[in-house]
Design a protein around this nucleic acid. Structure first.
Lengths: 142, 142
DNA sequence: GCATTTTGTTTGTATATACAAATATCACTT
DNA sequence: AAGTGATATTTGTATATACAAACAAAATGC
């Protein structure tokens, strides 16, 4: 059924969740090549760009909760893509050489994903939509 | 951090998920009064409006997978808000009197949620955003 | 300098959702 | 009428995320 025909299509909860689920599926496909979920991949790319990045910074960048960030890092550690060091109450996350070697593939996935959804909905419309969604995210309480 | 400052703020995956998570939180608050999550509440309202509604119809209305619909119904059954009857391969979902008695409260929650986010982002902007999100949902593959 | 509060991170637990497979029923074709 | 494919639903399992609490370390106030 088209969202426009759903009983609750005018509800922001319904629309935003339906959209996020569909986009997530699309993104999962794009990142399947590197065997990561989009969230793991984004976190990893941040760690590669800024080695030693701290969970608290990742929380702010990815707009996820601290516990979720910890869980994401754990999984990347299992996959030998990052290592964690602790000094005092702070933790630093460093990419491994394996992760650095993966960077081109990660960028390919990002690009593939972008090309994919751009082809479906158009670059202008998606850019506009992303902009209004971000504006809304910023207005909503944390 | 503002979404606009995040490294991946221009990515549809990031924006749509961040938005959905924040909206979900807002919605959870609104529906806390009836002790249901928004998904359960929407399903229940559909069952009240159309007694005997089948899971396959709920799948199309809510844009969720069949297994998720089954799980949502199970929980509503535990809470004695719906009953399921099976004839052949079809299942019918009926609201209980308890659910019918709850309907005004459900509508209050829906309204509370709407007022809540409208106050934050404005009725026009939210309406526009919902419209473009729905358009996108319809364009994306199932 | 000690007590209290704040901050950063992790852990235990819960939940919503999905995928894949199982199951059961129905429809259709010959 | 029997077999085959399609459809509806459920079940087993996995996963991403969150909340609340625990914990450790740092900062602050007196």
């Amino acid at each position: 059924m088209k969202a426009a025909n759903s009983k609750y299509c005018q509800c922001l909860y319904f629309s935003s969740n339906a959209l996020a689920r569909k986009i997530e599926k699309l993104a999962n496909d794009s990142w399947k090549k590197v065997g990561l979920t989009p969230s793991h991949a984004y976190l990893l790319m941040l760690a590669i760009e800024e080695p030693g990045i701290q969970p608290s910074v990742l929380v702010k960048q990815l707009l996820l909760t601290p516990s979720t960030i910890t869980r994401l890092i754990e999984k990347l550690e299992e996959k030998k893509l990052v290592v964690r060091t602790t000094e005092g109450k702070l933790t630093n996350v460093y990419p491994t050489p394996k992760a650095r070697a993966l960077l081109p593939d990660l960028k390919d996935c990002l690009n593939h994903f972008y090309q994919n959804y751009s082809a479906i909905i158009g670059k202008e419309e998606s850019a506009r939509l992303v902009a209004s969604m971000n504006r809304l995210v910023d207005k909503l309480p944390t």
